[in-house]
């Protein structure tokens, strides 16, 4: 049991850190206990998890052919770099 209950606002503020396992033990437990009795914040948690996954996909297919060609040439010339 933690010393105090936390509000939905406070729980939601810590959800991403909770998912990242970056909270101190007492704060982690407070969020866990809040989630155990708050269906709405459980929904927020699931959504935060999905949103985090969406962020991870943001790099896909970002190297255009012309840029790739120029940078490949630059890498080839690195043996002339001082």
């Amino acid at each position: 049991m933690v010393d105090r209950m936390i509000s939905c606002v406070e729980a939601v503020r810590h959800l991403w850190e909770f998912l990242d396992q970056g909270l101190p033990d007492d704060a982690n437990q407070a969020v866990e206990e809040h989630l155990a009795r708050c269906v709405r914040c459980c929904g927020e948690l699931e959504f935060a998890r999905k949103l985090r996954g969406v962020l991870r996909t943001a790099t896909a297919g970002q190297l255009p052919d012309d840029v790739r060609g120029r940078l490949a040439g630059f890498i080839d010339d690195l043996d002339h770099a001082e």
Partner: peptide
């Protein structure tokens, strides 16, 4: 050295898409 340069060039080629993605972001 020539071998270090070659190793760096290979590393850079392998990592180019990821490096560019990070730079872009």
């Amino acid at each position: 050295t020539a071998s270090d340069t070659a190793a760096l060039q290979q590393l850079a080629r392998d990592e180019l898409p990821g490096l560019y993605g990070l730079a872009r972001h």
